[in-house]
Design a protein around this nucleic acid. Structure first.
Lengths: 228, 228
DNA sequence: GTTTTAATATGATTTAGATCATATTTTTGT
DNA sequence: ACAAAAATATGATCTAAATCATATTAAAAC
């Protein structure tokens, strides 16, 4: 991690929903930080120190299991918040890790200042609350998928989600991360990707994946009597 | 559902964190509702109409899958909020169902009034936000458990969680609900309960379960290199 | 109070997907 | 540029847990 100067005071969640009078204070407390690819931004189990707003780059938010297993709960990108789970009422430890998937710039403020900001800016609190509501819904949807959908459908869902995130049918991701995101193993992902390739729903070249037939892919997700 | 008069204006989340001047307005908008055992309080997919505060009884919050499968994402009890997922930015549809597990009294207000309350009472918003943060952490923890723990460990976790909720080592729950909560099938729960009985970690009499050896049960949950 | 319906009990069978094993290719650190 | 580490490829094997099948019992409904 390297410090990377001040921020523009208008892009991030904190600046966007703070009252104009508060921006000066924000300016004093915020700083840009730079993380290079694969660098850990914060680690599950460590004390919560601050909150991060993603400016540039992509980050995976994941829970680790032992030394070699992992579950990616979310991918974050420009505009997203990281470290907000630390605001709960429990122990102040990060319950997830965040790792940069590419070179990443974040805007950072310590938790004390962020909490002061919440007190001063009701709109900020309200927006953050809505953000949580959305994340919770998504987490519960994924929980249900893990229990009731087979791996192929979950992989289809994961591919569509990642594509949506990149706002592009072409994107790059490691099989390992794909496995951790779909809640399965590398080998199973490998095999199911092969099947999707055969069925001409996707095309793969190295680490990059292109979605060729979104409609059919979506059918896999919906093929079950569930709603969505 | 039956209407059941006015509320005491101090027990629920909404009253507790609203400024005194707002309580009169709350009084005009809140009402007690009564649901009997197995009655549906709200249903996944239906438009969000309001928010509920549990006064008495126990409720399961669940996502359905087809007509016969189910995942219980949470049990709610006295003091808990229901229907808050409706505050997200997406479509205003309930993303979960809520069903009374016993005769239940809730305090209800329509969403428009609750949202007005949030605007007027920053503390309320802040507390709700914290509540969400906790729920999100728990949801993600369960996600990880579903992916990385075997059924027996998840059952142990479920039993401990339900016991904690009841604040008692003795509680009553159907095998089916236990299965839906642990993310597995009735048969698998049945078998694993047998094993726990054999190991003298629990005792079962009809639908009631007593935890005999919390420590060993907890070991099952922690037996893996994960943290918690 | 009897008919339906739902929950429980339990063995037998099947299968999706994890694990293991090993070779090859790609990345990354120095 | 080269060694070490990580990611990928792919077949073979194993197993936890789902599914199926069928009694039995308990709870609701009429």
């Amino acid at each position: 991690m390297k410090k990377a100067g001040a921020c523009d005071l208008k892009t991030c969640f904190l600046c966007q929903f703070s009252i104009p009078e508060w921006i000066a204070a924000v300016s004093d407390h915020k700083q840009h930080l730079f993380y290079k690819k694969n660098e850990v931004i914060f680690q599950e189990g460590n004390p919560v120190e601050g909150i991060f707003f993603l400016y540039e780059g992509k980050v995976k938010v994941h829970k680790q299991w032992g030394s070699d297993k992992d579950l990616i709960v979310r991918f974050a990108q420009k505009g997203d918040i990281l470290g907000h789970r630390g605001l709960g009422s429990g122990e102040r430890l990060y319950t997830v890790s965040a790792t940069a998937l590419e070179d990443t710039t974040v805007c950072y403020t310590d938790m004390a200042f962020f909490e002061a900001s919440l007190k001063v800016n009701p709109t900020l609190t309200l927006k953050l609350m809505q953000f949580y509501a959305d994340e919770l819904q998504e987490a519960e949807r994924k929980m249900r998928n893990l229990v009731h959908m087979d791996v192929k459908s979950r992989l289809a869902d994961a591919l569509l989600e990642i594509s949506r995130l990149h706002n592009d049918t072409l994107f790059t991701i490691s099989r390992q991360d794909l496995a951790s995101f779909a809640g399965t193993t590398y080998e199973t992902i490998y095999r199911n990707l092969q099947e999707f390739i055969q069925e001409k729903l996707i095309a793969v070249d190295g680490k990059s994946i292109r979605i060729l037939n979104e409609k059919k892919l979506r059918k896999y997700v919906l093929s079950c009597p569930g709603l969505d």
